[in-house]
Simulated scan of single mutants.
Amino acid sequence: MVPVKVVLAVEDRDYIEPLLNYVHGSEYARRLRITAFSQPEAFHQYMIETSGMKRPEVVVGEAAFLNLWTTRENADIPYLVLYEGEQVSEYEQLLLKYQPLSELVSSILETARQRSNSRKSVNSQEGGMIIGMVAASGGLGKTTTALNMSKQLGNEGYSVFYLNLETMDSSALFTGSDGSSGSQEEGLSRLLYDLKSEGKEGALLSMASYCVHRPEIQADTFQPVYNRKELMDMTCDEAKELIRTIAESGQYDVVIVDGDSEHGERAQAVLEASHKLIWLLADDLMSMHKCGLWLDVLATTQPEGLKAMICKTSFVVNRYMGTMINSLPRDFIELNGALPYIPSWKQMQHPELLLSSPIYQREIRHLCRELLDMESSAQPSVAWS
């Protein structure tokens, strides 16, 4: 299930910390994302600015905090008032402050469940937002960008799935698994089999039994596929069904799809199935040339599809060094962002450090904010304020 976003507002930090520790060490760790406040002013500011996918499902707090949230009646966000027996008659939804933590958390989740059917998806889409990563040639940093986005969004409290559809999956460098020891009856191979076996029922499949959680990238993903032929034989329709099954499973806010770098069946599926596309460029003649050629192919074979694709595409130059030397390959392209060149990555021996650059993370955060309309002052999923 999609983690429930909860705002907790209590003055006593000694109350907040045990609750957070309990959630993190229990079965609720994957079901809750808590942003905690002990200062009324910070809570008030957060509730004014919070919108989009960071909008909480439930607010739980003391009356002194909720009194500052003057727009609560119009916010369409359920709230629970923590009480100890004091007079709180002006509030209808009350929650006993001191009770077994399991019962406290269950009450919060039940409140979210009761409202979930009446809430629209933030993306105005069925299921999670699908973000496709595109590049006209290999070696442009597509996987590095995708995994940094995954980590950033996961740290922000979003539930993320990272799907790699490359024939040669380089993401194993980051997660430490090459798929060579994985069972062929598990993961992506089994899901593809089940989708073919169950047909239209596939959309109802739970992803939990197929994927693994990778804390390095703060996301669920599949073990890398050992049998590359499974990917090479995948049709466009099969790839689109796979992408949409994950997005519509009800588990994820965002699905990041790392597509192949050559125009083919899987690459076409990413173009068609994604709600948003990030098309990576490099400021060199060969990269720009190949990008233009790919766009020409799309313009010839599917002109109407190209128009729709451009509307949802952000063209981003990677390894940007402060100024552009080469021209963009086609006149209709507008550059929507830039990710910096990190010199220390050139001779790096430990790939996991590619997920740890503060400068790169800053620009990734900006890119995520543009894509998902994240508020600029978002708090972490568990915050002290």
Rank of each mutant, 00 (worst) to 15 (best):
S150Y: 04
Q218N: 12
L355A: 04
H350K: 14
A308W: 01
Q114H: 03
G259Y: 00
A136E: 08
R30G: 04
D296Q: 13
T35M: 02
T50Q: 08
G139N: 05
Q125R: 13
E49I: 03
I333F: 08
K240A: 07
G187W: 02
A239Y: 10
E186M: 12
T221A: 12
I217T: 11
W279N: 15
L82T: 00
M321D: 12
P215A: 09
S181F: 09
S344P: 01
E27L: 12
K5Q: 04
Q302S: 14
W279C: 14
I359R: 14
L306R: 14
L281C: 05
S124P: 00
K290Y: 06
P78W: 02
N117D: 10
H44C: 06
F222Q: 04
S89V: 15
S357K: 08
L101V: 08
L188M: 14
M309W: 03
V6S: 05
D14P: 00
I310W: 01
S274H: 02
S385E: 15
G292H: 02
E73W: 03
E198F: 14
F332L: 07
R266Y: 00
F332D: 13
L20H: 01
A208Y: 07
M129G: 11
L192A: 04
Y46P: 07
V254F: 11
R190D: 12
I77P: 12
E272L: 13
V257I: 08
R362F: 12
M286T: 12
Q93V: 05
L293N: 11
E238Y: 11
M133Q: 03
M47D: 02
Y252A: 06
P100Y: 04
I130M: 06
P343Y: 08
S381D: 09
I359W: 07
E370C: 05
V254G: 06
E238W: 07
A267L: 00
P351I: 01
G157I: 02
A383T: 13
L94Y: 03
S344K: 15
L192S: 08
G141V: 05
S344R: 14
E57F: 02
V160K: 00
T167R: 09
L191P: 08
L32H: 03
M324F: 09
S385D: 10
G154D: 00
G179V: 09
I217M: 04
S344Y: 06
F43K: 00
R369G: 07
T70Q: 14
N227F: 14
E92F: 04
A29Q: 06
L20G: 06
V23C: 01
I77V: 15
P343V: 04
R266V: 09
G199Q: 05
A42V: 01
L367C: 04
G128V: 00
A64G: 05
Y15S: 00
I256Q: 01
T221L: 02
Q302I: 07
W279L: 11
A299H: 12
M348N: 13
G85T: 02
N164W: 05
T323W: 03
M232H: 06
A269N: 03
V270C: 06
S206V: 05
P3S: 12
V316M: 11
P380A: 11
E363S: 07
W69D: 11
C236P: 02
D253G: 03
S170N: 13
K120I: 08
E352W: 04
Y158N: 11
I16D: 02
R31H: 13
Y28H: 14
V270D: 04
F315H: 06
P358S: 08
S377C: 06
S209L: 10
G176R: 07
Q251N: 13
